[in-house]
């Protein structure tokens, strides 16, 4: 930015067209977001591929990371959805890795955070929702709707409970996607605002430089916090996916 006193915390979320592409009247240009998605997939996939290429019985450092992430997601899925849920393991693992690496890459200055756009998180959440719905119906047929009818509820309360259950089921993709999106968006805005304070204050001279120490400390602390949140939100996203998949596999409460 040419004018250091002007800070636009929203600027970092702009989608910039790198290669204009238009198909069937839709603008599907290759953008900075597309680039980051490719970097995410290539980086995560490449790392896992290279890390496991030696197939060591005694793992090295990189292989350990690959194995730990494998075990981490596998135990998470097994704990919440049972061993039957393991058929969704590749999906959950891909989801976790993609979100995690996209979140972490977003921490680099000038890199857009792919997951800070609602459309991306919504697409992933709806994908989970559709998979749960389709698999649940295909596997259990109408018994899948037992999901909305908890056992041991008095008949009088039944309509109310079922209504609540249906609404909570239908709003899942919203909460699922907004949680990740909002966390990423808010975190990056906060980070940018505090960093902006530093720039603004230092331009005021000696007093400003001293005064800038506080927002600088905050920005450093927030950066650490953002790294934690980047991991945590990927974890939460995958965890919720596991819980929803469990509903598709075991619809009875």
């Amino acid at each position: 930015m040419a004018d250091p006193t002007k800070v636009d915390p929203i600027h970092q979320f702009h989608i910039n067209t790198l290669i204009p592409i238009e198909i069937g009247g839709y603008d599907v240009s290759f953008t900075n977001s597309s680039l980051l998605m490719i970097v995410t997939a290539v980086l995560a996939g490449g790392f896992l591929f290279i890390a496991t290429s030696s197939r060591g019985t005694v793992p090295g450092r990189a292989q350990s990371i690959a194995e730990i992430s494998y075990e981490f997601i596998a135990s998470m899925l097994r704990d919440s959805a049972g061993s039957q849920g393991m058929k969704f393991f590749p999906f959950v693992f891909t989801l976790f890795m993609f979100v995690l690496v996209a979140n972490l890459l977003g921490m680099f200055p000038y890199f857009i955070t792919v997951t800070s756009h609602l459309i991306i998180t919504a697409a992933l959440a709806i994908l989970v929702f559709v998979i749960v719905l389709v698999y649940g119906l295909w596997k259990h047929g109408f018994r899948f709707f037992k999901l909305f009818v908890p056992e041991g509820i008095p008949v009088v309360l039944m309509p109310l409970v079922v209504a609540i259950e249906v609404i909570s089921f239908l709003t899942r993709p919203i909460s699922h996607s907004v949680r990740l999106f909002a966390n990423m968006l808010a975190g990056h805005i906060t980070l940018k605002v505090f960093s902006g304070f530093v720039v603004s204050l230092t331009s005021l001279g000696a007093v400003g430089i001293v005064g800038a120490i506080l927002p600088l400390t905050m920005a450093v602390g927030l950066t650490a916090l953002e790294f934690l949140i980047a991991f945590l939100q990927a974890y939460v996203f995958a965890m919720l996916t596991c819980i929803y998949i469990n509903d598709a596999i075991h619809p009875g409460h």
Binding site: H14, Y26, D27, F30, T31, S33, S34, M37, H117, I119
Partner: peptide, 15 residues
């Protein structure tokens, strides 16, 4: 930007 629907097709396709 996150609510700018003109970027949605591109983001979805590349996702």
């Amino acid at each position: 930007p996150p609510f700018d629907s003109s970027t949605f097709p591109s983001q979805l396709l590349w996702l």
